[in-house]
Design a protein around this nucleic acid. Structure first.
Lengths: 191, 191
DNA sequence: CGTCGTAATCTACAGGTGTAGACAAAACCT
DNA sequence: AGGTTTTGTCTACACCTGTAGATTACGACG
């Protein structure tokens, strides 16, 4: 419940409030880590309204994934400095005091559930993968794009979710440089 | 229940059976995806024996992580061809028909739970990270080792858990080459 | 063969899960 | 104002979760 006005009776606004709460909750705790009651309470409504508007918890998650993955994240549109820019943004977003928590956190936190994984698979291809692929030249763009995403996801996992010390306390500039050099391998079109 | 002998009353063997079942179950479904009853039933005992021998579900998971991460996986001891060898093994282990399912699957499937994540953090540093770091020369070995682990974990996630098509159907040799080139960035000592 | 320690089970609890169905109330439309 | 549709809540179900306490049965040893 973030809106200030009590919002008496408004289907669209209520739906939006539930969706907003769900994005935050699923991203922070993962599909299995949240109950529909938690989401509903945070949106200021009853649990049953969730099923009323989204059919089921699974239906709600489907919409959450679609919205979260549709927002441009991390990958700039142009190929100029793609590796460097992406690496810098990644390091910033995964720093200890960052608060953005985008689709990568959502993906990693919900990957354990097979149903959630299947829902995310298509969304990744349609949104994140498509954006990344479009920025690449040369052959095997899909495969190279997904390898880039894999590096980003893995770094996010180690640095922010598992929290391994060496990556957590690494110098941001040095880390960004290393990640950029790894990304460059798949970003630069093969000679 | 994999052992052939009925095993009537044997504390050590029972403990081992529970641990074996737990490793398989936690690796396949993640910390939140399994109940102690599932593990106990698979070991041929009652749920209460789990708490009797391991204190709690969390205690059992701690021991599972320790055992699973202690086994050498993927990273060869020598630095010769480390990147190439590791990449080849990774691609083989994440192929559709692979059945090994080591610590990386366990880590990714259980990362959503904060308690599990904390348990895995120290184990990774003590086991996997230490092995990888020891194989590296030059400065910032810890950081570079964890970046290598991040790439492996991310590739595992995309290829085997999420199952994105481009990485799933990629030509194994080509994929291994790409991964090896990315790994080489952190494996080769900086000039 | 009886006794004793312990491996293993049985019963149970307090809480949480997603969701179905019946009900209350607010808002809109004549 | 009266009636109807929509918006929201309440109660409830069937099931699963981890774990505590009391109880049974097996096996070895004297």
């Amino acid at each position: 419940m973030t809106s200030t006005t009590p919002r008496r009776r408004n289907a669209a606004a209520t739906r939006e409030a539930i969706l907003t709460s769900a994005i935050a909750a699923f991203t922070e705790h993962g599909y299995d880590g949240v109950g529909v009651r938690d989401i509903a309470a945070d949106a200021g409504v009853t649990a049953m309204l969730v099923n009323r508007y989204f059919g089921s918890k699974e239906g709600l998650f489907t919409e959450v994934v679609d919205v979260s993955f549709a927002r441009p994240t991390m990958v700039p549109g142009t190929a100029d400095g793609l590796a460097t820019e992406t690496a810098r943004t990644l390091v910033a977003r995964t720093s200890a005091d960052a608060d953005h928590l985008g689709p990568f956190e959502l993906m990693l936190k919900s990957a354990a559930n097979p149903k959630a994984a299947e829902i995310m698979r298509s969304a990744i291809r349609r949104h994140v993968g498509a954006r990344f692929t479009a920025a690449l030249d040369g052959p095997d763009a899909d495969e190279r794009a997904e390898l880039g995403i894999a590096l980003i996801a893995g770094t996010w996992l180690m640095r922010r979710i598992i929290g391994t010390p060496a990556l957590r306390d690494a110098d941001p500039d040095l880390l960004a440089t290393q990640v950029a050099r790894m990304l460059a391998v798949v970003v630069e079109p093969p000679a």
